[in-house]
Design a protein around this nucleic acid. Structure first.
Lengths: 389, 389
DNA sequence: GTGAAAGCGCTAACAA
DNA sequence: TTGTTAGCGCTTTCAC
């Protein structure tokens, strides 16, 4: 066990009082240059790092950000949040925070867990994921004035100022994908989505419908939905491909559905009917750019998850550490956040095809917070084109 | 912000002194029944939960377990650790611990981060993953007598007592898979592995080689290796299928390589040569049973990751909380650990095909700790059979 | 069986 | 500018 070095040791070594050491660390401006240097040298020599527990007792701040890790879902789509978590841990570390994990099966048990956590570990903030209609977690947290950000919009909430959130513009993504398919000559572009009522699913469907409408294409009979996985995707794809006016391209709300669709599309004879026997192959596009999509050559919409995580941390840092600290603390992640939010620029794109740059008309954009950039950030997904489209 | 309820509030409410409350919570045996009940009632009413920070200052225990989350790898194989992490968080919670996350790019920076964490948050223990030859992290931790478990054997260490570890018997898995292929009539079973020198990869290859040898099959020319992903798997598979004596089945060290191999195996004409024009299709088996494998109908070896995580927590709980508490604290996970470790029974199998039950001869099994079950646990993977084999 | 006192390491307020 | 004092909430002696 490494010897515990306390502030007293440092003070003794630097021949100053304990408080001076504390000042050097927390309020460097108050301390004379040479004293400061001597103290820092002692800190370095002794390898001193302040005890969070002691600091927390005094300041009430734990420098902990808590977030939920979903119960093990072995499906393809579950990996998305894991990637977000990677980014969150990295960004948090850069901002001087650590990530504390918890699990919960539903909203109510999550609230209970948050309550426990609050009493025991006092995390400074929470990052909530998977927001949905009638989300009781956000109102619970907001009611207690606890700092939090959601990765996901406050679906179904009345317009106007809300809690800080970061999200990816799904509608813009599916719009870009639809346009990509239109540009490739497709007209009958089917959509395989989730059943209506899911904020994310409806948003993604809207981008497809809107783009089809703008191109003068009637979407009638091209819309299917399921909350299943690969098998469901395959079945719905077959249904769309066997319809009276069969689809020639399939846009899917998730990679798991898309992989099923891809299987149907690549199966012998699938393209036959739709394209008059020898036309182009059925195009398939998924959503999330999972590793499975990559492996299967599935074109997919990629969410900037690391950026989203960085924005979450930036938003929290702003709320927790006050304005002005943000730029240094997180390596400029917040600037990225702003640029993606609706200033015309779009985030880093490292893919063959550009992103949808225009803001999605249907998306909510709450007014800016007084005296600062918006606390609502909408990032743009990018289309990663592979063999399947 | 929820009103903070301190032990003083509880004491006042129950009309006892502060440490009587503390006694009720920490040493219930010392307190008279009715006093105890009154105090617990007050705790309930007020919703009191002890502050970890304050408790930690006094006891030196944080009830935090720290583990690394790998930098975002968008490959298929990276999802394995994520699933382990889900389980770890759940099991830790059941044992009264929370999981604290950190990131690091290599062993040295991980050690530095651990050192930082130790000074600041004082985690009670660490869970290390991805152990490898010449792992400096374990010796660093062991040298400081810090409690830790690894998920992964201490590859390349001299036999004998070592630190506590939990691992999955890869060789037994590939042996079972090989036997499955032999039973199906295959003789020329190729292996696509990682380059020699990786403990995990070599172990998995050994299970294949040993089983082939036991069946009297000459493995010459059937062994390939790469540290690449899907594309590499496809290339190596083609190589094996185009050889003078082509393979009729392919066993792969990872799902990403296997998915590539599957693509090669399913491509038109692949089975032709090997099976004399019209034989059975090329069989492919992967490792890790990832979501991509499931989606693609790839037969794969499934690691009991949740059990592994539970064993890690059980081992830590034993070291931290002392013997005797384990049974209650973690819901019997430790018993599972023992049974999987070499007592003849095998872990839960929810798959069509049974697991390899016999202990792998090549695997290390350090002596039991004095006065307790072994601190080394070897779990068995199970073969999940799908279309590909 | 219960209560009083001390102190973990830190920092905010105040004194010098 | 630096040092002193006090106390965050808890548990571990030690009296009673």
């Amino acid at each position: 066990m490494a010897q515990k070095v306390t502030i007293t040791d440092v003070a003794r070594h630097a021949k100053v009082s304990r408080q001076t050491v504390s000042n050097v660390l927390n309020t460097p401006g108050l301390v004379r240059e040479d004293t400061r240097r001597r103290v820092l040298e002692a800190v370095e020599t002794l390898g001193y790092r302040a005890s969070q527990a002691a600091r927390q007792m005094r300041t009430g701040r734990s420098r902990l950000i808590a977030t939920r890790i979903e119960p093990t879902r072995d499906d393809i789509d579950g990996t998305v949040y894991d990637r977000f978590l990677h980014g969150l841990t990295e960004s948090a570390a850069e901002a001087g925070y650590r990530v504390l994990l918890y699990t919960a099966d539903d909203d109510q048990s999550e609230i209970a867990t948050i309550d426990d956590l609050l009493a025991a570990y006092e995390p400074d903030a929470f990052v909530l994921t998977d927001t949905h209609h009638g989300d009781v977690r956000t109102s619970w947290l907001a009611g207690r004035r606890l700092p939090f950000v959601t990765f996901g919009r406050p679906w179904g909430m009345p317009e106007g100022p809300s809690h800080p959130w970061v999200d990816v513009d799904g509608a813009a993504g599916t719009a870009a994908a639809t346009r990509h398919l239109l540009d490739a000559g497709h007209r009958r572009i089917g959509f395989i989505g989730w059943p209506p009522g899911s904020g994310v699913g409806d948003d993604r469907r809207a981008g497809w419908a809107r783009t089809l409408a703008a191109a003068g294409v009637d979407p009638a009979g091209l819309d299917r939905a399921s909350d299943g996985g690969v098998a469901a995707g395959e079945a719905l794809a077959r249904d769309l491909l066997d319809a009276d006016r069969p689809a020639t391209a399939l846009l899917c709300v998730s990679d798991s559905l898309a992989l099923g669709a891809l299987h149907a599309a690549r199966s012998p004879g699938a393209g036959g009917r739709a394209n008059g026997g020898a036309g182009m192959p059925i195009a398939v596009i998924g959503f999330d750019d999972t590793s499975a999509a990559r492996a299967m050559g599935l074109t997919s919409l990629s969410q900037p998850l690391a950026e989203a995580a960085a924005c979450c941390v930036a938003l929290l840092a702003r709320a927790l550490d006050g304005a002005g600290v943000i730029g240094e603390a997180n390596g400029g992640a917040f600037d990225e956040a702003r640029s993606g939010a609706g200033l015309g620029a779009h985030g880093p794109v490292a893919t063959p095809v550009g992103t949808e740059t225009s803001r999605s008309p249907g998306s909510t954009m709450a007014p800016t917070a007084p005296g600062g950039p918006p606390a609502q950030v909408l990032l743009q997904p990018s289309l990663v084109v592979r063999r399947s489209a």
